Computed example of a mutant assay.
Amino acid sequence: MMQFPMMRQWRAMALVTAAWLVPHGAAASAQTLPGCDAAIAYSQARDGVAVLVLEDGRIACASAGVDVSHELWSGTKSLIGLVAAAAVQDGLLTLDEAAAATITEWRDVPQKNAITIRHLLSMTSGHPSAVGRPQGYAASLDVPLTQAPGTAFQYGPTPLQIFGEILKRKLSAGGQDADPRAYAERRLLQPLGVTVADWRNGPDGQPLMPQGAVMSAKQWARLGEFVRAGGVQNGKPLVDGATLRALFDGSTPNPAYGLTWWLPRATPAKDAVTAATDITQAGGELPQDMVLAAGAGDQRLYVIPSRKLTIVRQARLNMANVLSGKASGWSDRQFLGLLLGS
Rank of each mutant, 00 (worst) to 15 (best):
M2A: 14
M2W: 10
Q3V: 12
Q3D: 14
M6Q: 14
M6T: 07
M6K: 10
Q9W: 10
R11T: 06
R11M: 12
M13W: 08
L15N: 09
V16I: 12
A18H: 10
W20T: 09
A27P: 07
P34M: 08
P34R: 05
C36I: 02
A39Y: 06
Q44T: 11
A45F: 03
A45H: 06
D56C: 05
D56F: 01
D56Y: 04
R58C: 03
I59M: 13
A60F: 05
V68A: 15
S69V: 03
E71N: 10
G81L: 04
L82Q: 03
A86N: 05
A87T: 00
V88S: 03
L93D: 02
D96I: 00
A101Q: 14
I103R: 13
E105M: 07
Q111M: 10
K112W: 04
K112Q: 12
K112N: 05
T116F: 07
R118F: 02
R118A: 14
H119A: 09
S122R: 10
S125D: 13
G126Y: 01
A130D: 14
G132M: 11
P134T: 04
L141P: 02
D142Y: 03
V143E: 15
P144K: 06
P144S: 14
P149D: 11
P149Y: 06
Q154M: 12
G156T: 01
P157S: 04
Q161D: 10
D179A: 03
P180G: 08
P180Y: 04
R181T: 00
Y183S: 01
E185D: 11
L189A: 12
Q190E: 13
P191R: 08
V194P: 08
V196N: 04
D198A: 15
W199M: 05
D204Y: 02
Q211Y: 05
A213T: 07
V214P: 07
Q219D: 15
R222M: 12
G224D: 11
G224A: 08
E225C: 06
V227T: 02
A229S: 15
G231E: 13
V232C: 14
N234R: 14
D240I: 00
D240R: 00
A242L: 06
A246M: 00
D249W: 03
D249K: 00
D249S: 13
S251F: 05
P255A: 08
G258S: 09
T260Y: 02
W261P: 03
P268I: 04
K270L: 12
K270A: 15
A272N: 11
V273E: 15
T277M: 13
M290I: 00
V291Q: 09
A293C: 07
A293K: 04
G295E: 06
G295V: 06
A296V: 07
A296N: 07
Y302K: 05
P305G: 10
K308R: 15
K308F: 05
L309A: 07
R313I: 01
Q314M: 12
L317T: 12
M319R: 04
A320G: 13
V322A: 15
K326P: 06
W330H: 12
D332H: 14
G337N: 13
L339P: 05
G341D: 14
